[in-house]
Design a protein around this nucleic acid. Structure first.
Lengths: 321, 321
DNA sequence: TTGTAAGCGTTATCAG
DNA sequence: CTGATAACGCTTACAA
């Protein structure tokens, strides 16, 4: 493998000049520039990026910490990160942590070891104050609301509230909710919104661990076995909503007559199901998080709240009028 | 930032000794080893991986080329890659190409520039013989069947055929199919299976560009407007199948009485829909591809065919008996 | 068991 | 405009 020194020898110039040509610096005589270009072709030279990284002290790579690459919600954020990274000439390393603390530590370690210039934490289980110290090694951006760190987030309290109010506007008072991980930052905000907004808020109507379509189906079965049931459900994701709806229909229930359901995400699943849903611009979150990660004002811990919108479906909400 | 030389000075040993301690080499006196450990703590030393990469000539990173990180099929493969990479102490860089040739070139370039030790091509649009030359820079593994390169794949011909035969076993003769990208390697194999297996194979019953749920809904609308219709459909993915089924139901059709539908993927969507589907172990594909990428027999272009299984749902297939 | 010193392949300072 | 040369931070012969 030819290196920059071979190139210099071949073109009969110094390595400095070669480097200048390689990096499109001005102040290189045209004939020398051409000589270098010829040498590059002749020797089939290709720059070794690792050496560039060591020399410049940057990797032009950011890291992404997320629990599962194949969950729609996270994958959508990843999509946004991927788009921005490509546009900015960056690459990104993804760590799938499965919410295991030791795996998350590995990711933080990678930042400290300078494998990445910055980190985007899509979701985590480690407490924030165990992550915070690693900021000395580079920017860390959260896709969740935390005042003490840079964050790009949606307001789960108000987003959830908008869904609840939509149900109330159709006359529903017996409203239940679905939550993902019981003690996540997001779930806590959602639970608060529920308790603040729905007078009849009931622990029996709070369905936990709702993440996938099958979780939704489980919830539908649980609901159908309850004596005292909600008439409407605000779910944690469109996938959960889909699981609920499909399972209910399978059992002969009608949606929304027997149970009104609202989704969360604004995915194409909601469109096809005519599901009313809280639309979240995940790609935007990913893009914003990326841009903070490579900006230089991250030390001020910028907070950027991304707005959500209630997307009205046709069938899955109306009832009780 | 303390470096290995500061450490050597602090512990009063040579950098070689420090390096040995860092890499758990034997032949270091216990007292010196301890001295180095103390110095590491005292100075808050953290190894610079970039320097390790330059020195060793390896990045312990593999690259992944795929069109979209947020499509279920590709995300599932990514999941497998992520699991294996973590277990093996590797990282992975993902490039989302959107099937744009110039983006795919960027990925190949990254291999040439030694940013990654190897490459996994999940799906591509560039012709194989434009990719092949880059093998001189490192292993390239395809998740698609190509004799000329290393590949980990499923046999789309037989997988599709198993779905078609399942429909035939229920008496269907008027069978249509859905395909993704019209000219992909996979679509071609599927089309061959269709023509070889279904005597009444019809171009009007070959629905192209079927990738998402909404594509499925489009196909359902197209189907309902046709005068001469198939009675059964083998789809390109469970998502497409779901779109078809949900749209058909919305229009008042019954599945499978009016149209029998078989899915492809074996996703949880299929489970909830009671959909018969061709189950594909995507995670296994990702894991296998990764293991080939870091093995040293990749030069022999190993071929590994991953078996699929027909997963019988309850409702979406029975009819015409 | 330990250390010296030569890489790895760039970039960047500084003097011409 | 050009070129020595010293970093960047680590690994690894080779010698002792």
């Amino acid at each position: 493998m030819a290196n920059i020194r071979d190139l210099a020898r071949e073109a009969d110039v110094s390595v400095t000049t070669v480097s200048r040509v390689l990096n499109d610096h001005p102040y290189v005589a045209e004939d020398k520039r051409q000589a270098v270009r010829d040498a590059i072709i002749k020797l089939g030279y290709i720059r070794n990026q690792t050496a560039v990284h060591l020399s410049t002290g940057q990797t032009k790579t950011i890291g992404v910490m997320l629990p599962y690459v194949d969950h729609p919600y996270h994958a959508a954020i990843l999509h946004g990160i991927a788009q921005s990274a490509f546009e900015e000439g960056y690459r990104f390393l993804t760590w799938q942590t499965n919410y295991i603390a030791s795996h998350e530590q590995t990711v933080l370690q990678a930042l400290a070891q300078r494998e990445v210039d910055g980190l985007i934490v899509v979701s985590h289980s480690l407490p924030v104050d165990e992550i915070l110290p690693y900021e000395q090694y580079g920017p860390i951006v959260f896709c969740e609301h935390h005042e003490e760190v840079s964050s790009v987030y949606i307001n789960h309290y108000s987003a959830f509230q908008s869904g609840l109010k939509a149900l109330q506007s159709f006359g529903h008072t017996h409203i239940g909710i679905c939550l993902g991980r019981p003690d996540s930052t997001n779930s806590r905000a959602r639970k608060r919104a529920y308790q603040d907004t729905v007078p009849l808020a009931d622990a029996e109507w709070t369905y936990q661990h709702a993440l996938t379509i099958e979780d939704g189906a489980d919830i539908a079965r649980k609901w159908s076995n309850q004596a005292y049931r909600p008439t409407a459900l605000l779910t944690a994701s469109d996938h959960v909503a889909a699981g609920i709806i499909l399972e209910l229909r399978k059992q002969g229930y009608r949606v929304p007559e027997d149970l009104a359901v609202i989704g969360f995400d604004g995915s194409e699943l909601a469109v096809v199901l005519n599901l009313t849903t809280v639309a979240v611009p995940y790609e935007t979150i990913g893009r914003q998080a990326f841009s903070v990660a490579i900006s230089d004002n991250w030390r001020q811990h910028p907070q950027s709240e991304i707005p959500t919108t209630l997307l009205s479906g046709l069938t899955a909400i109306k009832v009780l009028d």
